[in-house]
């Protein structure tokens, strides 16, 4: 098999570009609330037949809004198994569900208990919280090569501590007392 110089170079460039492109995030998101920031900006990949989004968010809560200035990182997966009808310009994903793990920065939080405590004094890492949610999404197909689509999503969720609290206190607490609402936008490339 013969490849002339030009072809082989372009082939190499192509592969390199493809490789580089596959590391680029497939989409970006901006989320309001949902326990991961007043505003959280995220980027991630779509995988498993485009049914799962996995994103890393950086979240920020200003002191004026949240009572304390809070920075956090969240790793979140969202599974959207169905679309309503065939995807057209608008695609509706009526049901999504997923989970995230949220790391809160700050010296008052820990993963491993500080030395001042005997073993397993509190017994839980305060800087890590797990959240679960259900929601939905709509996507609008764009005629743009760089941004192929934009979408809106909403989620209703809770975190591990509030869920445990509800399970242990079904009389006083109710689902309404432990859930919270969030919204986000997504742009896919």
């Amino acid at each position: 098999m013969y490849l002339n110089g030009q072809d082989s170079t372009s082939l190499v460039n192509d592969t390199a570009e493809k490789k580089a492109r596959s590391f680029l995030p497939h989409h970006m998101k901006v989320q309001f609330a949902g326990g991961i920031g007043f505003l959280a900006i995220g980027a991630g990949y779509t995988h498993l037949k485009k049914k799962v989004d996995t994103d890393l968010y950086f979240g920020y809560v200003p002191e004026k809004i949240g009572g304390d200035e809070i920075f956090s990182l969240a790793l979140k997966s969202t599974y959207s198994p169905w679309t309503l009808g065939k995807p057209k310009r608008y695609t509706f994903y009526p049901f999504s569900t997923g989970a995230f793990i949220n790391y809160t920065f700050g010296s008052q939080f820990w993963i491993i208990e500080p030395d001042r405590y005997p073993d397993s004094y509190y017994g839980f890492p305060t800087s890590l919280r797990i959240g679960i949610f259900v929601g939905g999404r709509v996507r609008y197909q764009l005629k743009n090569k760089k941004v192929k689509g934009v979408g809106l999503y909403y989620e209703v969720g809770t975190n591990d501590l509030e869920l445990i609290s509800y399970i242990q206190n079904p009389e006083y607490l109710s689902p309404l007392k432990i859930i919270n609402l969030s919204f986000g936008i997504k742009a896919d490339f």
Binding site: A33, G35, I65, G66, I70, N159, E162, N180, L181
Partner: peptide, 11 residues
């Protein structure tokens, strides 16, 4: 308390 920005917020 429909919106929660952080489990550690003080609102």
């Amino acid at each position: 308390d429909l919106f929660e920005y952080s489990p550690y917020q003080i609102v």
